[in-house]
Design a protein around this nucleic acid. Sequence first.
DNA 1: CCTACCGATCGGTAGG
DNA 2: CCTACCGATCGGTAGG
Lengths: 213, 213
Amino acid sequence: MSAQQSWPAPPSSGAGKAQRPQKRSGRRRAEILEAAMSVFGEHGYANGSLHDIAERVGMTHAGVLHHFGSKEQLLIALLEYRDDADVAELEGHHAPRGAPLLEHLVDTAEENGKRPGIVQAYTVLLGESVTDNHPGRNFFAERFAGLRDMITSAVADATNRPMDDPQTVSAACAIVATMDGLQPQWLLDRDAVDMRATVELTIRALVQELTRQ
Amino acid sequence: MSAQQSWPAPPSSGAGKAQRPQKRSGRRRAEILEAAMSVFGEHGYANGSLHDIAERVGMTHAGVLHHFGSKEQLLIALLEYRDDADVAELEGHHAPRGAPLLEHLVDTAEENGKRPGIVQAYTVLLGESVTDNHPGRNFFAERFAGLRDMITSAVADATNRPMDDPQTVSAACAIVATMDGLQPQWLLDRDAVDMRATVELTIRALVQELTRQ
DNA sequence: CCTACCGATCGGTAGG
DNA sequence: CCTACCGATCGGTAGG
């Protein structure tokens, strides 16, 4: 935001009508974010270069910095951009809360199996986020806190247990962990892991275990 | 190995007796590997520098390269070194196979809660390993294949199911995923996650679910 | 194991 | 959004 600067019109476009510069700029930002997701997924954040990202959208790395100010801010924008996309999708499915959320997580695991690029970027960035002073640390910490809350509530709903029961919280931790932990296994050997079936089994087993007691 | 070179004795040590150079060198290698685990954990492999590692053991980065040939070979040596340490510990506990392995995994989760440095290094390196052409890729792929096999066998043992049952395999995938997926959650908020209790609950729930059917 | 050095790359800035 | 540039850092090598 504070890094946003103004800049003159492109060399040959002259001073004609503005062609909705905001809209074009928004589209451009989205293109850069998509390229960043690919590059960070393929090489990691630390090892992914602004040059590579810029090349994929046909500009120089200084152009990318014009749009995002710094590499760190590009990362943060990317994480929020991905989160928005997930939330939009969640709302498309009517943003399930309570017990139906658990079924939605199984669908998510299945959909992830069709988006290796997104899974790769998520896995790499999550891993890097636990390094000291990493710019993505806060994002993931808050994401986990929010997910655990929502899923604890869903498990409580499905098992008629209180939300502050330690076992209910543990089940929520386990569900998040299973989904995240399956991703590197799957990326490293896609034939060895059925993400949907495994998440489905784990959720069913946990709900049964907490209900039966 | 092919990068190993000979080099003259240190400036002031003269040509006296050799002082068990192999032993001293082995100790030095171990010191470097411990430093590398810290540095790669704190900054990631891509972003961790040989300079930092060398500094922590009181030498220059050229000295580190003398011992390991290249940064990639240092990483591979580190992964094998860690694996050896785990295996040694496993054997210390009598290398459980079959159902008792599942109890051992719960103990491992608890012990991990006392070794944040190792957990951080593992989480970071695993995340980076799914990037394209990463030197640690093979190590983790084979590690997962081996773990899944052992745990599938243990689950089959505990539930009287065949090893080639898809649900048995899924349970093994889920147990590995839960242990790995809990680590970033725990590193980002240690008070929010009880690794031992969560692994214990997940294993119990999965075994029950597969037994009950 | 060190000194000295190299080529390469990188993020960021100036200035238009 | 580009050109041109900067300082910094990095892995690796030569040569002892």
